[in-house]
Write a protein that binds this DNA or RNA. Structure first.
Length: 304
DNA sequence: ACCCAGGTGGCTT
DNA sequence: AAGCCACATGGG
């Protein structure tokens, strides 16, 4: 009986031929889908396109449609997170959206330590740092270097549809998982080049090979030093991978936007990366990664 | 046509 | 250590 495979608490429904999990998580706070998915931490989620405010995208091996309903009194900011997915139980999605972390407390502490950050925190109040797959963040942020976000998204979609495991059809399109490391490691140069990844295709293949061998030795990269030793990974990309892939929330990626911010707000020279990181560490300590996300999102949207 | 993008590697001072 | 520059591609 098929239904015996459905996780407890979810409802099956057949849609486009796929068996879907429906998960509802009540009493969620400090979340806004646009903030979460547009703040630059991930590249596979897009608005559902029907004006609903929902997002569709993929996490790990699952495609999903995510919807947020404001329930009860607006004041409290309590929401119900509704997930329609091709897989993943409630525990998986709770983890993915980092629902075990109290972002209200984090925001309070950031503003207490640095009142200047208040506008940014208020603007991106619903940001949550997703718990993403390490290999996916490694490759995604190699793609991101010297690249713009719309094109990064295209490159990653191209990688997924060419090399990712087929998930199925849902929400009006076909879905593929992010490619497995060994599949990318064995891709040919010509095929990778055809995806228009530019000069990064060599980095991607080499990183995949390296990742496979690391993994097979039973030691995935976990320190800044190890991550930096991947070709195509410099200080900025390494910090993104630590923050988004390894969940080192003390990491403070300094990109072009953060450079502008640090120059505007504190007068740092745009080349003084060391100084900026030291400042972030002193000011925000282990919360520097969160601070960086609020600042990045605020300044990218409200520009300068 | 132009500058830029969630930069990095390599080479030269 | 610090300053250049090429890199592949396409968004605006």
């Amino acid at each position: 009986m098929l239904t015996s495979f459905i996780p407890r608490g979810s409802t099956d429904l057949l849609k486009d031929g796929l068996l879907m999990n429906r998960i509802v998580i009540n009493d969620v706070r400090d979340i806004d889908l646009e903030h979460v998915f547009e703040c630059g931490q991930c590249f596979r989620w897009v608005p559902a396109g029907d004006g609903s405010g929902d997002y569709t995208g993929a996490a790990g091996k699952y495609a999903a449609r995510i919807s947020l309903k404001h329930d009860g009194v607006a004041e409290t900011g309590h929401c119900s997170l509704q997930i329609e997915a091709t897989g993943g139980d409630e525990a998986f999605w709770r983890d993915y959206f980092d629902l075990g972390t109290d972002y209200g407390a984090i925001k309070d502490e950031l503003v207490r330590n640095e009142p200047e950050i208040e506008n940014a925190v208020k603007y991106g109040y619903g940001i949550r740092i997703l718990r993403q797959d390490l290999f996916e963040t490694l490759i995604s942020f190699i793609v991101s270097q010297n690249n713009n976000i719309p094109r990064i998204r295209k490159c990653i979609e191209a990688l997924c549809s060419r090399y990712g495991e087929y998930i199925g059809e849902a929400f009006g399109r076909e879905w593929h998982a992010f490619p497995e490391p060994e599949v990318l490691a064995e891709a040919s140069e010509e095929d990778l080049a055809a995806l228009r990844l530019g000069y990064r295709s060599g980095y991607i293949r080499a990183a995949a090979e390296r990742y496979v061998s690391d993994r097979d030795c039973g030691h995935l990269p976990e320190t800044r030093e190890e991550i930096l030793s991947y070709r195509g990974v410099g200080p900025k990309v390494a910090n993104c991978i630590m923050l988004f892939g390894l969940r080192d929330v003390g990491a403070f990626p300094v990109d072009t936007w953060v450079k502008h911010i640090m120059n505007d707000m504190y007068g740092f020279d745009e080349n003084d990366m060391k100084g900026m990181e030291r400042f972030a560490c002193d000011k925000f300590g282990e919360l520097a990664g969160y601070a960086q996300q609020y600042l990045f999102y605020y300044y990218r949207d409200n520009g300068r």
